[in-house]
Design a protein around this nucleic acid. Structure first.
Lengths: 206, 206
DNA sequence: GGGCAGGTCAACCGATCGGTTGATGTGACC
DNA sequence: GGTCACATCAACCGATCGGTTGACCTGCCC
């Protein structure tokens, strides 16, 4: 099994290399610390599975990188290996074509299993992640619209309704309507609480 | 040089072990994934330097662990090794008795240097961290009071002025006065913007 | 064609917020 | 003793926000 590592932390790359070194059926054929290097390296080394971090320091993030990797001719499997477990991160990664999603905090055996599962093209999720996804399925929750997210992002910047209206080329009345919907969906009743709730759920980033 | 690792990510612990394994003057005498195990292990193994992550999953965080480690009879040096680089994290760690502060994203050589520096009891800072600290020195910035931080935390929960007043046993007028000060210090003019600014500067956590 | 969800807008109200000025009391520091 | 930072409170104003009701249009699915 040929693996390619994408992570901006040298320590993590060394750790994966060390752990994988103990598995006879796995081999690391390359690594990269950012999206651009990763694309080049993956096209060249043609790994079976790419282990991808979501935060990559400067430049495009892991989600973008995943999307591009999945557009390569070989379509290598991408297993996201990251620290974060917000719904939005998970959904965005899967949506970008990731085959699985594993947390760095998971025990090594779980990671190895996930890599083997991903190599077969099957979906591999950390138990914690799987639990989270199932909870989402049982309770789909609010599901904000794209417009509402847009409003939230401006809200987080501290913009007033008037400013939001100007920015989005709509009237203040419309902004207020959207806000009422957002409050309802997030179960809050002030703009500030809406922002923190949205951040905690991974709907927006600061 | 006897090292002890404290990090909740098995991958990171493996990475540090692998990297340090290449340095003849270093030896890992123990590791732990949480504060309680760390305290026990460190008291037992008596390392020269403790590599400490700030986020440790459940239980007390790295700052608390650092404080307790520094209260042990041997007073081992603590080198904080983490992903985060907000001013508040750095200051809290140093304040808790950390000898140095290094980012996981740094190249291995930098890390080794920092470990050796810390072992001598001298302060070791990542260049990125050092730059940040110097900027803070040149431009001390706002420096919010404890009371103002308290207000900010309630603000982040979406509390209105009336609720903040009730919670802190002061009048609404006083809350407004504090808020005016906070706005001025953070360079914003709405409560929502104050919250995001405070989060970005690491003054409060969500 | 008939829903239905999403987006847009209007008018209105009371409550809250942002900003101001001015004041008092308390510690710390020199 | 003076001064300075911090925290506390009051009264006032205009602007903004939260909440409501009702309306129209579009695109989509059945």
């Amino acid at each position: 099994m040929r693996l390619f590592l994408v992570d901006d932390h040298p320590v993590v790359r060394a750790g994966l290399a060390a752990l994988v070194g103990g598995e006879p059926d796995m081999e690391i054929v390359g690594e990269a610390a950012n999206a651009a290097d990763a694309l080049r390296g993956i096209a060249l080394r043609r790994p079976d599975v790419v282990l991808m971090d979501l935060r990559l320091g400067d430049g495009p993030d892991g989600v973008e990188a995943t999307r591009k990797v999945r557009e390569l001719p070989d379509r290598p499997q991408v297993l996201v290996l990251t620290t974060y477990e917000t719904d939005a991160d998970i959904v965005r990664a899967i949506d970008a074509g990731a085959t699985g999603y594993v947390l760095k905090a998971c025990p090594p055996d779980e990671l190895f299993q996930a890599i083997r599962t991903a190599a077969r093209g099957e979906t591999a999720l950390s138990p914690k992640v799987a639990t989270r996804m199932l909870r989402r399925l049982r309770d789909p929750g609010p599901a904000l619209t794209a417009r509402e997210i847009e409003i939230l992002q401006l809200l987080a910047k501290g913009a007033g309704n008037k400013e939001i209206a100007r920015t989005l080329y709509i009237t203040e009345a419309t902004v207020k309507t959207h806000l009422v919907h957002v409050y309802g969906k997030l179960g809050v009743d002030t703009r500030t609480a809406a922002v923190t709730a949205a951040v905690e759920r991974g709907l927006i980033r600061l």
